[in-house]
Simulated scan of single mutants.
Amino acid sequence: MKLALFDLDGTLIEKDSDHAFCEFLIALGWVNADEFHRRNNQFFKQYQAGCLDIDAYIDFATAPWRWRPAAEQQATMQRFMAEVMQPQLLPAAHALVRAHQDAGDRVAIVTATNEFITRPIADAFGVPELIAVKLQRDALGAVTGRIDGIPSFREGKIARVDHWLAAQGACWADFEQTIFYSDSTNDLPLLERASEPVATNPSPALEAIARERGWRILRLFE
């Protein structure tokens, strides 16, 4: 059996779902548009530069919705999926995931975006196994604005995959091949850990590294 791991934003979907959801909240009128847009873009540039303060970002990104009733949160997510994400679910990405599933590989999405946003997207790809940033919840189940445990970001992706495999009584050595698809240099730790790193719709920086190291380059959105 092979282990096939997929980053999400920029890899299986062309947009960054985290950034897009924040922009969706602006469209809903839930935030001060100019200030929230400015800060959202600022955090996104930090992510692209590899210096994101993910704790500060989670507090910022969840603040407009975490106090709202659960039913309203879910209704908003359903609208976001239908209006923003559905057009991002392209046949080539679906086909890549399905090819691994049909081959009997163990498949998981490993993303630095939080579980509230990414669970419906993983479901749309037909992938039950999602390793995403877990949101801390209080005794009543409300999101606090903090991260629960290790965030699946940069080196944290390796730790979270290790924990996920261990919970199933497995480890990396159980697989004849480990494949990781990603577009971003933020994922270099996990790309380097995989036996077959695949630079997928890579950023210019990752494409340069992939060419230097002889990694496979895959483009799903052309």
Rank of each mutant, 00 (worst) to 15 (best):
P197C: 06
T144Y: 12
L191S: 06
A170F: 01
R160H: 05
P189H: 09
Q177A: 15
A167L: 07
L140C: 13
V127M: 08
E129I: 01
F125V: 02
K157N: 07
R193D: 05
A170P: 02
K134T: 10
A173I: 05
A142P: 03
S152I: 04
F175W: 14
E196I: 03
F175Q: 05
K157Q: 10
L188V: 00
D183W: 03
P197A: 04
W172K: 12
P202N: 10
P202A: 07
L140T: 14
D162I: 02
Q177G: 03
W164N: 01
Q168L: 08
K134Q: 15
D162E: 14
V161A: 03
G141R: 12
V127S: 01
I158T: 08
D174W: 14
I158N: 07
E155P: 12
G156R: 05
E192V: 02
L140I: 06
T178L: 05
E129A: 15
E192G: 04
S184P: 09
P128C: 00
G141C: 13
T200D: 06
S184L: 08
A124S: 13
I158K: 09
P202M: 08
R193H: 14
D138T: 13
E129F: 01
G126Q: 08
P189N: 05
R146N: 14
K157R: 10
T185N: 07
R154C: 11
E176V: 13
E155G: 08
N186S: 14
V127I: 10
C171V: 06
L165K: 06
Q168E: 13
P197Y: 05
K157C: 02
E196C: 11
Q177F: 06
S184Q: 09
P189S: 11
L165M: 09
S195N: 06
N201P: 00
G156V: 01
G156P: 04
R137K: 15
G145M: 08
D187T: 03
A139I: 08
A132K: 07
V143W: 12
I147W: 02
V198Q: 05
G169M: 07
D148W: 13
S152Q: 09
L130Y: 08
P202S: 09
E196H: 13
D138W: 14
Q136N: 13
V127F: 04
H163Y: 02
I147D: 05
T144H: 13
